[in-house]
Every structure is written in structure tokens, then in C-alpha cells.
């Protein structure tokens, strides 16, 4: 098969750039610990309300300025409804759903993941700036999807 010389150069540059790009993605994910949220824990969606720690959703302090937030996402809201942490806190969000699929997104941050019944998903974020951060559901979940939101206050 005949390849034009310019096409060879074009494709080689493209393939080289691509290889470099993929390498960087791998380094990012596996050497620098920035893999996408991929929690493998499971839970019975019909028993979320009686399975600790999701029976009592809320913030738990686990270290100096570090918190675990156990939350449920349901049609059409999040629990707990009020959360407050001091500036500079690191929060590990752990979220599950007792009904349909929801999303969990904090606009302006990189916290953005799917909440699926039967699974627990997680992400961590350090809130360095004070403010009232919006938490929204970004996966269609039914007629009230557009009101499904809460906030976390960072003081």
C-alpha cells in the first residue's frame, strides 16, 4: 500500500503525540493517584436505611481537618441536608442510592461521580476556600431532578 510522504510524517507525528498522551494519562492515574472514582464496594439498595454508616448519614471527623461524609442520594434530595466544615478541611465523600441512579457533582471542583444503587462511590476534596458550595445531582432521575441539590458550607 502506498503512503504519501507527507501523510507518513503526519501520521507519525499524530501517533507519537498520541502515545505520549496515553503515557501521561497512565502516569496521572497510577503514579500520581488521580484515577477516576472507581469504588468497588457494594450494598443492598433495598436496605440502605438500615446499613451502617448510611443509616445515619452525616459527617464524621476522622483526623485533624479530615472528615468522612456518608451520604445518600435519593429521588429527589441528598441526606444529610446540612454540612459544615472549617476552611482547609479534606472531605471524603461516600455516597449511595436507595432507588435510581443519581449524580454527585460540586460545580467549581473536580468532585463529579455517578451514584448507583447497589454500589458506593467515593471522591475526596480539600476545601481551601470558604463559601457555600452547591452539590447537585447531574444524572436524570425523574420529575424532580432539577431540584435535587444541597450545599456544604466551608467556614
Amino acid at each position: 500500500m502506498h503512503l504519501h510522504r507527507f501523510e507518513k510524517i503526519w501520521l507519525m507525528l499524530g501517533a507519537g503525540g498520541l502515545a505520549l498522551f496515553i503515557l501521561l494519562l497512565c502516569v496521572n492515574a497510577f503514579a500520581m493517584g488521580m484515577a477516576p472514582p472507581s469504588n468497588m464496594e457494594m450494598i443492598d439498595p433495598k436496605k440502605v436505611a438500615e446499613t451502617p454508616p448510611f443509616d445515619k448519614p452525616g459527617l464524621k471527623q476522622v483526623g485533624d481537618k479530615e472528615y468522612d461524609a456518608y451520604m445518600t442520594a435519593f429521588a429527589f434530595g441528598f441526606s444529610p441536608t446540612k454540612m459544615e466544615v472549617p476552611v482547609g478541611s479534606t472531605v471524603n465523600f461516600h455516597v449511595t442510592s436507595p432507588d435510581v441512579i443519581h449524580g454527585f457533582q460540586i460545580p467549581g471542583t473536580n468532585v463529579n461521580f455517578m451514584v448507583m444503587p447497589g454500589h458506593i462511590n467515593s471522591a475526596t476534596y480539600t476545601f481551601d476556600k470558604p463559601g457555600e458550595y452547591l452539590i447537585i445531582c447531574n444524572e436524570y432521575c425523574g420529575a424532580g431532578h432539577q431540584v435535587m441539590a444541597t450545599t456544604i458550607i466551608v467556614k
Binding site: P36, F113, S122
Partner: peptide
């Protein structure tokens, strides 16, 4: 499905 639970980061990377 990159932002989903239940699929490991390694398999996601293979598909990427």
C-alpha cells in the same frame, strides 16, 4: 462509565 463505581481504574484505562 469513567465516573462509575464497580469498574476498576485499570479496566477504565484499557478502554481509554
Amino acid at each position: 462509565q469513567l465516573m462509575e463505581p464497580g469498574i476498576s481504574a485499570g479496566w477504565k484505562m484499557i478502554h481509554v
